[in-house]
Structures are given as structure tokens and as C-alpha cells.
Simulated assay, not measured.
Amino acid sequence: MAHLTVRLHALRTSETISMEPSTGKAPGPKNLEIEGSQLTDRPVHYARAKEDAMYRSILSGEKPTVEDDFSATVKSAMESVVSSDENSILVEKFYLAYKFRSQFPWLIESGKLPEEDSGLTGAFRYALSSYVAAYEPKKHFENEISEGLSLPVDLLKESISRAIDDRVALAQFSNALARQSLYAKDAEVDSLVPHIRRALVRYCERRESGTTPDPW
């Protein structure tokens, strides 16, 4: 029987992956030498190789592999940001962007999709998975005036804990960092905080993304 061929545009590669129609599964991940010095010295190639391995594992029904130390570091960095008075206006804007997006039932922030972790957890997942490390924020919230919103810090931290359990979002965040030569094995809380801040700013700037049911 002919194979069903699927092209993954997200891989940014011309490679196609064949899937058996009887099983609907892709072949298992290739043995990619992505930790060697040849690729780690070239961040873009390293990140693309990691993306290739990640999407192959997803198509094979497996969850991407993310180091527990990296998960814990990202969690600590995110909690540091939402707990800091320095970032209070940014977190307030992030929460308001989440509340705005939660009005649309087709967005994960609405809590009305079948995903187990939607709502505010979905907002954090989206911020991590859509992050671009080379992104330069258009907005700076340091000098903006607070709207006096009482932030549910405990709920924010609880949602962060659940968002970190999403291995796909975490792997995508790790890949974005690798493109800027910050690798998961070297990540520390202090080095991640600026990236978490920019991820939240980017989420705020894209608050209206996908808010129309028919983008065409």
C-alpha cells in the first residue's frame, strides 16, 4: 500500500516523514547527534536538530524529553517573575491579556477546550511555546501606571506548575533558547528571568492573535 506522506512545515526542513496508513504512526526518532560539539557550536543547527527530534517523537506518540533540572529552573524563574514587585505591572498586563483572551471559546485560555490544562495554565503554556529568543519587545511596562488589579499570585504559581508539566511547550521554549546559544543544561534562574519576562511581554503584545474565529 502506498504510504501517506506528511510534510512538517514546523521543522523548517524539506524532509518528509512517511506514515503507515494502517497505524497512523511515524517511524521512531532517528539517532540524532545533537549534543556533539559540531552542532552545539552552531546554535541554529542545534535547535533545528532538537526540533526534528521533538516532532518525530510527537508523531510517534511519545512525549519530548526534557531534563528535570531544566523544568525546575524554568519553574523557579517564572515564579520569581510573578512574585517580584519589579515585574508587578508586567504580570498585571499579562493577566489582563489572559482575561481578554479567555472571552473567546475557541482559545485555550477560555477553559472550554478539551485540553486538560487550559485557562490560565494555557496562557503560560502559550507564552512558553510561542517564545522567540531573538524577539525584541515593542512595549516596556516599567513606566506604565498600574490599574490597581489585585493579582491572584497563588493561582499564578499553581498555573505555572501545571504549565511546566507540558513537555511539548517546555521543549519548544528550550529550542528557542538554544537558537541564542542558551542550552538547557547551562540554564540558571538568573539567565532565564529575562527570557521569561520577554515571553510574557510577547504574550501581551499578541493578545489579539487568533481572536477571530475565521482568520480568512
Rank of each mutant, 00 (worst) to 15 (best):
S88M: 10
S88R: 15
S88A: 15
I89A: 08
I89C: 10
V91S: 12
K93T: 05
L96I: 09
L96T: 09
K99G: 07
R101H: 08
R101L: 09
Q103G: 11
P105L: 07
W106F: 05
L107M: 14
L107I: 08
I108W: 05
I108T: 14
I108A: 14
I108Y: 09
S110L: 11
G111S: 07
K112E: 10
K112Y: 03
K112I: 04
P114Y: 10
P114E: 08
E115K: 15
E116H: 14
D117H: 13
D117C: 08
D117M: 05
D117T: 09
S118L: 03
L120V: 06
L120D: 02
T121S: 13
A123S: 13
F124Y: 07
F124I: 01
F124E: 02
R125W: 00
S129T: 07
S130I: 00
Y131N: 04
V132C: 09
A133H: 03
A133C: 14
A134M: 01
E136N: 10
E136S: 13
K139T: 07
K139G: 00
E142H: 08
N143K: 15
E144R: 14
I145N: 14
S146Y: 09
E147A: 14
G148D: 02
S150R: 14
L151D: 09
D154L: 13
D154G: 03
K157C: 04
K157V: 01
E158H: 13
E158A: 15
E158P: 03
S159N: 11
S159G: 05
S159F: 10
A163W: 02
A163I: 01
A163V: 02
D166R: 10
D166Q: 03
D166E: 02
R167D: 09
R167N: 11
R167Y: 11
V168R: 13
A171Y: 04
A171T: 06
F173A: 04
S174V: 00
S174K: 11
N175F: 00
A178M: 04
Q180H: 08
Q180T: 03
Q180G: 04
Q180V: 02
Q180I: 02
S181P: 05
L182Q: 01
Y183G: 06
A184I: 00
A184W: 00
A187D: 00
A187S: 14
E188W: 02
E188M: 09
D190T: 14
S191V: 11
S191L: 11
L192P: 11
V193L: 07
I196G: 09
R197D: 00
R197L: 00
A199W: 00
A199R: 02
L200S: 07
L200N: 05
L200F: 10
R202W: 02
